[in-house]
């Protein structure tokens, strides 16, 4: 475990805490994409099937369980909580995520390291994670008043991805035989998806303005 990896994981953890706090404290999920949360649920379920087959470390297992539990909590709130569900931007959150899920799954069937159920689902989760933020970014673009916490949530998620790239570079230089091309390419694609958002986030922060994304 290097410092970049740990920092990346912590950013991921903070992003989820920010989202949980925001929804819980304001009793509102305005500006939050349920589609992105559901895509993350699929990503985590498919990737963390190895919870049943292999033990890596207490840290690893704990983080996996936190990611799974928190994502399902957010989905539950947005769908069923009697106060929170009313605040969901149903009409704006219209990204058709089947157009992400199907191609990612087909790609995982073709491009994988081993043609087994576990490995294909794991690879599928890698591809799907790369694009899972898209419904959220589209929703932010349609939201006129992006509140700080929602903006911070996406910024923290993007930072987590950027730090993972540094982690890969560090590991590549320090560990012999460490390489994972599919993960790297997907991770780089995933980070590129955030660049536009980063630009507007930092600009609004420097100019002390409210964040808004041009349509």
């Amino acid at each position: 475990m290097n410092i970049f990896r740990l920092a990346g994981d912590m950013m991921h953890l903070f992003s989820i805490i920010v989202l949980l706090l925001k929804i819980n404290a304001t009793r509102s999920c305005r500006g939050v994409s349920l589609k992105t949360q559901e895509l993350y649920a699929i990503v985590f379920v498919c990737r963390y099937l190895d919870l049943f087959t292999s033990f890596i470390s207490l840290y690893n297992t704990t983080m996996k369980l936190i990611f799974l539990l928190s994502t399902f909590t957010i989905i539950y709130w947005m769908r069923f909580h009697k106060v929170i569900r009313v605040t969901y931007d149903r009409e704006q959150d219209t990204f058709r995520y089947q157009f992400l899920i199907l191609p990612c799954f087909l790609l995982a069937l073709v491009l994988n390291n081993e043609f087994s159920a576990m490995e294909v689902l794991w690879t599928f989760s890698i591809y799907l994670e790369a694009v899972a933020i898209l419904p959220q970014l589209v929703l932010l673009q349609r939201t006129n008043n992006i509140d700080n916490l929602t903006g911070n949530y996406v910024f923290l998620l993007g930072s987590y991805r950027a730090l993972y790239i540094l982690n890969w570079i560090y590991r590549f230089m320090t560990e012999p035989n460490y390489r994972q091309y599919l993960v790297w390419i997907s991770g780089i694609v995933q980070t590129i998806v955030y660049i536009d958002f980063f630009y507007y986030y930092i600009r609004s922060w420097r100019n002390n303005e409210k964040l808004s994304l041009p349509a």
Partner: peptide, 10 residues
């Protein structure tokens, strides 16, 4: 040649 996958990442 198969990659050595680092499944220790999250």
């Amino acid at each position: 040649v198969r990659e050595k996958i680092a499944k220790d990442e999250l």
